[in-house]
Structures are given as C-alpha cells and as structure tokens.
Design a protein around this nucleic acid. Structure first.
Length: 834
DNA sequence: ATCTATGGCAAGCCGA
DNA sequence: TCGGCTTGCCAT
C-alpha cells in the first residue's frame, strides 16, 4: 500500500503558515503537515541579479528567484522595471509594486500555488512523511502497464510532427507515471441538516436564528445515523431501515456537539450546498449556542464555512459545473437541485410526504433528513465511486487541490495546469497586456455578428432518407490541431521572421517552427495519452476490472480537460486569452474537414452532411473508408475514425437537425424541437412514440406502414388536445432565465411575462425555470399555477404540435413524393393524406 | 456570484 | 404586416 497522497494545501491566514493535507489510504486518515517557515512570499524577478541585490536584505521576502524569459514572445514593449504583476505570486522590482503585491498577498492570495510549485509537490501524488519532512514516493509501475505503455503508446505516439520530439516524449512519460498512480478509496461522511420551518421564509445561515431540528449522517464505512431534536411534533412510527440509528435529543446544543464530533472523525465531508447553507448555519448556530470554538470543526471564510482539519466537498457546486454535467454525466440532469441530480444519476428522489416540512412528525423528519444525506453520499459512490475518482484524477492533471477542483470551473483548472508548467520551467507568465498587444489588429473578420472569430464548418445537408450511412469523426480534432500545428499563445505569430512562411490557411497567422509551444506540448501530450493509451487500455480484456475502471476514469477526465482546452484560448476570462491561437485552431479545423470532403468526393464517396469534425458518408466500401483515413493522417496528422453506422438517416434541409437509426434500432435525434427541454411533455411523449415506430423500419417498404401508424398517433393526439383532455402539467413550456429578471430590457419574452404574473416576479432569479402555458388572454401566456384548462389556447398548441412533428415528417414525405413521382409537398396535412 | 468557444434553429417581440 | 432583433436551446 502506498504511503500518503497529497490532497490539498492551503495558506492559513491566522497562523501565517501553510497547511498541507495528506490522505493515508491505510489508516484512512488525514495527515496535516504545517509549515511555519513559509509565510514569506518568494520574489520572482526578470531583473538582473545585481539590480535586485538589495531585496535580499528584506525580511518580508523569503527568497529571490530569477525567471527566464519565455523567448518566443517579443520583449520590446516590456520595460525592465515592469514586474511580473500578472502573476500574483511573483513580486519584485520597484518598492511600490512590492508593497502592493505584499498587501494583496496578505489578504487573499493563495499561498499553496507557490508552495506546491516550489517544493515540486504535486496534488494526487504519493509522499512519505517522516520526521517533519515530505519525501516523494515513486510507485512501481507494473510490468503489464509498462508493456502496454510501450506497445500502445510509443509505437503510436507521433512525435514527428513536433518541433522537438524528445521534449514531447518526456511530457508523455511524466503524465503516464502520474496518472497511473493508484486512486485511493476515500473515507467520507455526508451531512445534511433540517431547520425549524417558518412559513414562507428560507432560513438565513448568517443569522441562524431557528433551531436545527435534525442532522443526517451517512459515512462510507457503514456509518448510518440521524440525530433528531424533540419538538412539539408527534413522535410517529419508525419506518427507517433498522440499520439506521435514530438518536433523539432534548437539547439542541448537545445534538450539534455530537454531530461535530462525528464530522471531526472523517477526513472528507460531502454536502449538497454546504458551502452556502449547511456548514455556515451550523457554524453560526454553534456560536449562538455558545459552543466553544475549539470543539467546532468549522471555520468561517467570507460567506462560506469550511473544515479546519478535513476536506469539504460541496456537491452542489460540483454538479453545477458544466464540464461535469456535459462530459462526465452526458447532460443527464438539467437543473442542479439534489432531487433532479439524484433522479437522473441514481434513479432515486427526495422523500415527499405531501405536507409542509414543518408538519412532519419526528420519525418522518428523521427519514427525510437521513434520505437527503444518503442521496448526497450516493452521488459520490455510484458507479464504483466514479465522482471521487474523477476528482482525484482531475486534481492530478490540473495540479490543483481536490476541494478546489470540486468548486472551480474548467478555465481555472486549465489555468492552474498551465501556470504550474511555467513555474516548473522558470518561465515568465505573460501579462494580459502583453498578449493583447500581440493580437491587436491582426484578426480576420468573423462572419457572425457578436462573435470574435470564425468557428467550425457546417456542411449543407442533403435532404431525404438515406440508407447505410457511415458517420466518421476526427478524434479530438481541436486538441490534435493544437498539437500537430504547434498552436500556443507564444507560437502563433511568434517573433521569428523565418516562421512567417509556416502559414495558417484562411488567416494571416503563422506558427513557430523553432520551438514547441507550451499549450501545444501539454494539450498534445494529454491528447495522445487519451487517444492512443487510455482509450484502448480501458477496453483491454487482460486487465482486471479494477484497472479497466481506473483507465476509464482517466480517459473521461482527459476528455473533460481536452474539450475545454481550445475554448479557453478564446475566452476573455482566461488569463492566457489569445484570439489568434483560437482562430488558427478553428481555421485549420475548417481546412481539414474541407480537404477531407474533397478527397471523399474525389474517391467517389457521396458526402451527405458534416459538422465541424464529423462527416456523413453514403454507403461507402471498407476500402474507400480506409483510403480516407490514411489520407487524413498523411495530409493533416489527425485520426479519422468510424463513429457509427446508421441503418438509415433522415436529413432535413436544416443544419444540426437530423435523425438516425442504428443497426440495433437505437434512434439518434439531433436538434429537433421535439427533444428540447422546454417543449411541453405531451408533445415530447408523442415525439418519442413516433421515434419508436421509426426504429423498427428496415426498408423503404416499411415506411408505408410506419407512415400510417404515425398519422394515426398524431390525429388521436390532436383530438385529445381539441377535447381539452390533456392535463395542464403536460402542456407547460419550461424555460430558463438566462439572466436576472431586471436585465430583460430589449424585449420581454413569454416566460418572463408569465413569471411576472406571480407577485410581480419577485420570487424568480437567474437560472430558475419558469413553467407556463399558452393561453387566450391578452398576454398569450399564464404561469402554470394560475392557469386552468379553460384558458388554454388550443389553436396555438395544435400549431406547435404540427411544426414540431413536421421536422420528422417533412423529409420523409418529400422522399415519398420523389419515389412516387408526386409534386413536392411539405405540410403535415399532406403527410396524412398525400 | 459566475464565466471554455462558435454555428444554427424556432419562436416571439416590437418598431417601421 | 414585415423584418430585424432577442432569446433559449441544442450540435460540435
């Protein structure tokens, strides 16, 4: 068993020291390692040593490090007196700028970033802690993995495209070593609290005025307990599983103290919205009840509470992270409440007794509260601890503490990852202004208003029903391009005159041909590992289930990072924002897909459709496919792969709108209104029923039968609508507010109109979903709560139903008309009787 | 308090 | 009534 894994490091303001938290998988405890010496910042400087000699005298600076210039960036505009102010940890130069930096540092700069860098400590790596020293512990890589690395990686890694292939290989082996370290089982406790209910008011954790009535606790080692405060409510009967212990308290103070003692026991604590609610409430309530600070495991930061000893993970923030939502959990949940997320990922829900929480009896409260803690725990444990494992792996890649990974967005992970690499090499981290200066006035025009540059290419679809369609796509297209074409903030438009002939198609940019770019190296090595190594290892049958599981998780984590890595270069919030790099990436992408399509057509393959990195081919032979794959690799250094084959594929004349049925009968629907989340349930249900009909269609002849079935279903649904038989809930449109209600100035959309009808829209905020129905009143809409069946605008609904279903039927209809030699017809009416 | 990008569609709003 | 613009949702 390995020694201890570094999980977190923070600067502790009050004691002016760094606290490193190591997790020991054997004892399943945290080892806290406090460094009292490190409270002074390091000084990074671009100045010559003699210019900064006087700084050695200062006792508020620990050590001066000189930083090498990243020599691919022109330096003519950077004065020597300008200090690396953009890097919060790098201070030096003029007295005033030192002082400013010091003040900032004192208040809120995170010490650990510097700390981790300087000691070469890596989050997620194993260390031995002996006699107050931290010693890196390198784990043996098993022979099998070594062999796999050799066979799957080195033979396939394409370092020829890199300017410096050896440097690239070094990156790959370092990553492989880190990512292959075992993931420890993390002992953890989930906590959820209930507060005495006051009608119509949400308890304020800052005031913590009302009593805590229950504390649910669920631990990974079978700890199942719920504490309940005796109130006026009836006791009720115990319906909880017998392994769950219900403990009643007469005194709230004692209950909270006991809960604190349990929390103290566990190295990791997970909550759902504990940052904003449960933990600050407990902290403030404890203050109010005069529980002494020393027995309180929590401490307050500005608005949120955290743990003194343990590591706290707030799942609400983790599941709100769009990267997790989309790439790790395939967008299976749409809002971030505990109930919705649990429903989607666990198939379980919160308990609903059908009465107000304040009216529950004691055992009901216990059950409700414990259930929330259980759901919270299971969100971290389902699928063999998938979420915990993802957090550990992303912490390793992002060089960031686990609890920060769980709270911060992907742009901050990537920032941390890139900064780490700069510091390791003593590179200057460029200032925003330096990068801005280099991108001024050099951009080509974006074709779309409100966009900064041109993006991916979408091919005009060939309308109709097509049989035997092979969908191919480029594996990680943008990361591949970043690697192969050496795209990075310092390599695109580099300072070398000779590189200017290494042009980027469709732009006025060029890329460096003398030195590897930082992002190109990092993103490129991670891409190669994912595509050539982890993807195949996760399917290798000779490995154990456990090993395969780890490789799957690593592959998923890499996917998350890689997918975001191109995006951040074009995002203002990203400190290494550099538009020419983003523009170059998409331009090469368009060039790659365009050239590939040309090659297909040249080889006699019909290309039906394509979007950014995918192409739809009509019934190609295996030989033709292989030719195209080879060509793409040879010409562009990218991997074209078969994604799937459709038995048939219905393309409309609209881009990003199609339907495909695979050989196994699975229906893929893309972009059609019928699947969108705001569409009323009754239309969605009908829509999916129609898809079921289509999934069994095998040939052109089957369509005639399918068509009859479809028209019957549509007609019956239309009748139910006219007769007002459909329940109101199934008629609601559910639309999200993408901004604060007050920001809707230019127009007032329907969902805002509806929301404003309840108390003038007081209770809604950004991110909420509004449920409304279309009605015959002047506004045309009413919120679900206020509407009744007689208000429904049936005509509008029939129109909406028709237009939604036409997206399926129109292309089919068209196809039939062509087959039968009839004139062109498009409408739904014609579909029925045409 | 939160933030990776652009391309594209349907529907509704609102001024000309 | 028309058409440009805003909005939200989805594809990649």
């Amino acid at each position: 068993m390995p020694p201890s894994m570094l999980v977190s490091a923070t600067y502790d303001g009050p004691s002016k020291s760094a606290v490193l938290k190591f997790y020991d998988p054997k004892s399943q405890k945290l080892i806290l390692w406090k460094d009292e010496t490190g409270h002074k910042p390091y000084c990074f400087s671009r100045l010559a040593p003699d210019e900064i000699a006087h700084l050695n005298e200062r006792d508020d600076i620990l050590e001066i490090k000189t930083v090498t210039r990243h020599d691919l960036i022109a330096d003519s505009d950077v004065k020597m007196s300008q200090i690396i102010a953009s890097d919060p940890l790098a201070i030096g130069g003029r007295e005033s700028s030192i002082r400013n930096s010091m003040e900032t540092w004192e208040s809120d700069i995170k010490y650990y970033e510097n700390y981790l860098y300087d000691r070469r400590l890596i989050v997620g790596k194993y260390y031995e802690i002996k006699d107050g020293a931290v010693i890196p512990h390198d784990l043996e890589i098993s022979d099998e993995v070594k062999l796999a690395l050799k066979g799957l990686l080195w033979d396939k890694v394409d370092s020829d495209s890199m300017v410096d292939g050896e440097e690239f290989k070094k990156f790959i082996s370092e990553w492989a070593e880190l990512l292959n370290q075992p993931i420890p089982k993390i002992r953890r406790l989930s906590v959820d609290i209930e507060i005495e209910a006051v009608m119509g008011r949400i308890p304020d954790p800052k005031i913590a005025e009302k009593k805590v009535t229950a504390v649910g606790l669920k631990g990974s080692d079978g700890y199942d307990r719920v504490f309940v405060l005796r109130t006026d409510a009836e006791q009720g009967t115990n319906a909880l599983d017998e392994k769950i212990e219900v403990v009643f308290y007469d005194e709230e103070k004692k209950m909270i103290q006991d809960a604190f003692a349990v929390i103290e026991e566990f190295p990791f604590v997970v909550t759902y919205n504990g940052d904003e609610f449960d933990l600050p409430y407990l902290y403030n309530r404890a203050e109010r009840l005069k529980i002494e600070k020393s027995s309180n495991p929590l401490y307050m930061m500005r608005d949120s509470a955290s743990l003194k000893h343990g590591v706290h993970i707030d799942l609400y923030r983790t599941f709100s992270n769009r990267s997790f939502q989309i790439y790790a959990f395939s967008q299976s949940y749409t809002d971030f409440s505990l109930n919705s997320v649990s429903k989607a990922l666990l198939g379980k829900e919160k308990i609903d007794y059908g009465v107000e929480l304040g009216d529950l009896n004691l055992y009901q409260t216990a059950n409700y509260c414990y259930n929330d803690a259980l759901l919270t725990y299971e969100l971290t444990s389902f699928n063999s601890d998938l979420l915990m494992n993802l957090l550990v792996i992303i912490a390793r890649i992002g060089r960031m503490p686990i609890d920060d990974i769980a709270r911060m967005g992907v742009s901050q992970w990537i920032r941390s990852l890139l900064y780490y690499e700069h510091r390791k090499n003593n590179y200057i981290i460029p200032k925003r202004e330096e990068l801005e200066l280099r991108s001024q006035g050099v951009m080509s025009d974006a074709i779309i208003k409100d966009k900064k540059y041109r993006g991916g290419l979408v091919v005009e679809p060939k309308e109709g029903i097509h049989f035997k369609v092979v969908v191919m796509d480029f594996a990680s297209l943008y990361p591949s391009i970043i690697k192969v074409r050496n795209i990075s903030y310092e390599t695109v438009r580099c300072i070398h005159e000779e590189c200017k002939k290494n042009t980027i198609p469709q732009t006025n940019h060029w890329a460096c041909s003398k030195k590897n770019g930082m992002t190109s190296l990092i993103i490129g090595s991670l891409r190669d590992l994912r595509v050539n190594y982890y993807k195949s290892l996760s399917k290798k049958e000779t490995l154990t289930e456990e090993q395969r599981q780890q490789y799957t998780v690593v592959s998923q984590a890499l996917k998350v990072i890689l997918n975001a890595s191109y995006g951040v270069m074009g995002a203002e919030i990203f400190p290494l924002y550099f538009l020419p790099a983003a523009e170059a990436t998409t331009a090469i992408g368009r060039h790659t897909i365009l050239e590939t399509i040309k090659k297909c057509e040249g080889a006699g393959i019909e290309v039906l459709y394509g979007d950014t990195d995918s192409i739809f081919l009509k019934d190609p032979t295996d030989e033709q496919i292989q030719t195209v794959i080879k060509q793409a690799k040879k010409d562009h250094g990218v991997d074209l792969e078969i994604d799937k084959t459709y038995r048939y594929c219905v393309l409309s004349n609209r881009k990003k709108n199609y339907l495909g049925v695979t050989e196994s009968g699975k229906v893929d629907v893309k972009g059609l209104t019928g699947k969108k989340s705001h569409t009323p349930k009754f239309i969605k249900d009908l829509f999916y029923e129609l898809l079921d009909v289509l999934s069994v269609v095998q040939s052109v002849e089957d369509f005639a039968k399918a068509k009859r079935e479809i028209s019957e279903k549509i007609a019956s649904c239309g009748r139910r609508l006219e007769q007002r038989e459909i329940p109101l809930e199934d008629l609601t449109f559910n639309v999200m507010l993408s901004k604060a209600p007050s920001e809707y100035i230019k127009t007032i959309p329907q969902h805002i109109r509806a929301a404003n009808m309840i108390d003038g829209g007081k209770d809604i905020k950004r991110g909420d979903r509004v449920s409304y129905v279309k009605t015959i009143n002047r506004a045309g809409v009413m919120p679900l709560k206020l509407a009744s069946k007689k208000d429904i605008d049936t005509k509008k609904y029939v129109e909406f139903m028709e237009s939604t279903l036409e997206q399926i039927t129109s292309s089919m209809s068209l196809e039939f008309d062509t087959i039968l030699g009839k004139p062109k017809q498009a409408g739904l009416e014609e579909f029925f009787w045409g």
